[in-house]
């Protein structure tokens, strides 16, 4: 049994339809992931990439990550240190990519309120988002157990690594 997936950190606020071209701009696609990450969301919030600290959380509106299948959109967030995303809905491919990189992405229809720098806590197992600064809590959709296990392992590749190792032991 792995640890329940809970993440806490400072909130970064975004609106609806943050697309993959602003998360991972195509013009940086040939360079390193670190370079790509340094441009993540710069056309929406230039303070984001330089300001993120490990453990921070993105709070966004509807259709977060809509657009391309480029998983660099999710990977850039993890490289910057983002641990969880809370959004009203997701671009479907982005959602899968986020989980594959061990990023806890939860969906909540609640009107979650947070000021920049408020501290949030996300519990994917019971389905709860807490603003630790104001003390308010909201519900979110719980993440299915097999996906929580994958996130806890650090994503799809580490999770496959374990499975393949377990098969070899047998």
């Amino acid at each position: 049994m792995t640890e329940p997936v809970k993440e806490g950190g400072r909130a970064w606020l975004f609106g609806d339809e943050v697309d993959t071209d602003v998360l991972a701009p195509g013009i940086y696609m040939k360079g390193s992931m670190e370079e790509m990450a340094s441009h993540c969301l710069e056309t929406v919030d230039p303070a984001f990439a330089p300001g993120v600290r490990p453990g921070d959380i993105v709070l966004a509106g509807a259709n977060f990550g809509i657009g391309s299948s480029r998983e660099q959109a999710a990977q850039a967030l993890t490289i910057l240190g983002i641990k969880a995303v809370v959004a009203k809905s997701y671009g479907g491919i982005f959602y899968r990519n986020a989980l594959n990189f061990g990023l806890l992405a939860v969906t909540s229809q609640a009107d979650i309120t947070a000021s920049p720098e408020d501290r949030l806590m996300v519990d994917g197992e019971v389905g709860k988002v807490t603003n630790l600064t104001t003390g308010e809590t909201w519900g979110c959709d719980p993440v299915p157990p097999h996906l929580l296990d994958m996130i806890a392992a650090g994503g799809l590749v580490p999770s496959l690594e374990r499975k393949l190792a377990a098969q070899q032991v047998k």
Partner: peptide, 15 residues
Amino acid sequence: MFGVGATDMAGVLVT
């Protein structure tokens, strides 16, 4: 037919 990212694709290629 649906789109997936590269890590998902790697999972498909292996399994």
